[in-house]
Write a protein that binds this DNA or RNA. Structure first.
Length: 316
DNA sequence: TAGGGACCTGCC
DNA sequence: GCAGGTCCCT
């Protein structure tokens, strides 16, 4: 691993988030793709700003850092402006995921087939809950390509971080900047009815203390964090759980969306077959996973979600 | 409480 | 018609 001097440059652009630029570093390591598959992990709907490059690599942003990942068999080369520890944290590389896999299969054997189809799907740990929150605010009643376009559009408002293969990557804007947006400008940019809720939610967060308030929800119990998030405009049970799981490290959270709903009805609740997703039934499904898997429930849920998403066309 | 409909926009 | 829903109203 090489580690060059860090140069801190505070950007003076008032309209953008303050950020830091570092001299790029790179490091190499060995990684079994069936334990951690970077391509799968950044494409399975936890994050919306990673893209595949012409050289076959992956590039994306997390918080103040941009990353460029190149995988060749078990050899991985990472370039970026952050530390190796930050990269390892993003992909939760310090945990024993083979053991986690065995634990999930032991307690919920019916999940084994789906886990087998998606080897290397890892739960990420974003360092910017603000980006997670507003990304998922864009996701309601929406599809992936448009969600990505909307998140990319918001990201243009943030400070420039670095250039990868000729493409400029931005830090996600801070809540204060998002709170300045107007409904009409967001509607012009194609946000649809979410244009109304995004600035309102941002103002609510600023009112309560901004990003520090949101980050503080990492260290309160999951149910407390969830109920606080539910007070925000446009945030219902599903989004609150996504924010808890992907942005706040509450890994017992189980977001129940249309895909998880379908799988759950097939697997555990046949009586839900022609029913609607109510608060009560939502809780029953989440509880079914949480009671058996505890803090591994959120990771396990990801297999239900993504396997169903990939194969939804093939089902009735 | 459960069920139903509206809501932006774009792709199947 | 339907998307990784939420909100409002019977």
């Amino acid at each position: 691993m090489t580690r060059d001097i860090e140069v801190k440059i505070v950007l003076l652009n008032e309209s953008a988030s303050p950020g830091t630029l570092h001299v790029p570093v790179s490091f190499d390591f060995q990684q079994d793709p069936s334990d951690l598959d970077f391509r799968l992990t950044v494409n399975c709907g936890q994050v919306f700003r990673w893209r595949e490059l012409d050289d076959g690599g992956l590039a994306g942003v997390d918080g103040d850092n941009w990353w460029h990942v190149s995988v060749s068999g078990e050899n991985v080369r990472v370039s970026g402006n952050g530390t190796q520890d930050q990269f390892r944290k993003l992909f939760r590389m310090d945990q024993d995921w083979a053991a986690h896999r065995s634990a999930v299969i032991a307690k919920a054997p019916e999940l084994a087939p789906m886990m087998g189809l998606l080897p290397g799907l890892r739960l990420m740990d974003s360092s910017d809950p603000v980006e997670v929150l507003f990304s998922f605010l864009c996701s309601s009643n929406n599809h992936l390509p448009r969600i990505k376009a909307m998140v990319a559009s918001m990201a243009l408002l943030g400070a420039p971080l670095g250039v990868v293969q000729g493409e400029l990557f931005h830090r996600f804007p801070n809540v204060e900047r998002i709170a300045e947006l107007t409904e009409s400008e967001l509607r012009e940019k194609g946000f649809g009815y979410r244009a109304a809720t995004i600035p309102v939610a941002a103002k609510q967060i600023v009112e309560m203390g901004g990003s520090p308030w949101l980050k503080a929800l990492k260290s309160v119990p999951y149910h407390r964090a969830r109920s606080e998030l539910l007070e925000l405009a446009g945030v219902g049970p599903k989004l609150a759980d996504c924010i808890c799981l992907f942005g706040l490290g509450h890994t017992e959270a189980v977001p129940v969306d249309t895909h998880v709903w379908q799988v759950a009805a097939r697997l555990w609740f046949p009586e839900f077959k022609n029913a609607s997703l109510t608060t009560r039934r939502y809780a029953q499904i989440a509880e079914a996973l949480q009671s058996r898997l505890g803090t591994l429930a959120g990771w396990a849920h990801q297999f239900l979600f993504y396997e169903n998403l990939l194969n939804w066309r093939g089902r009735s």
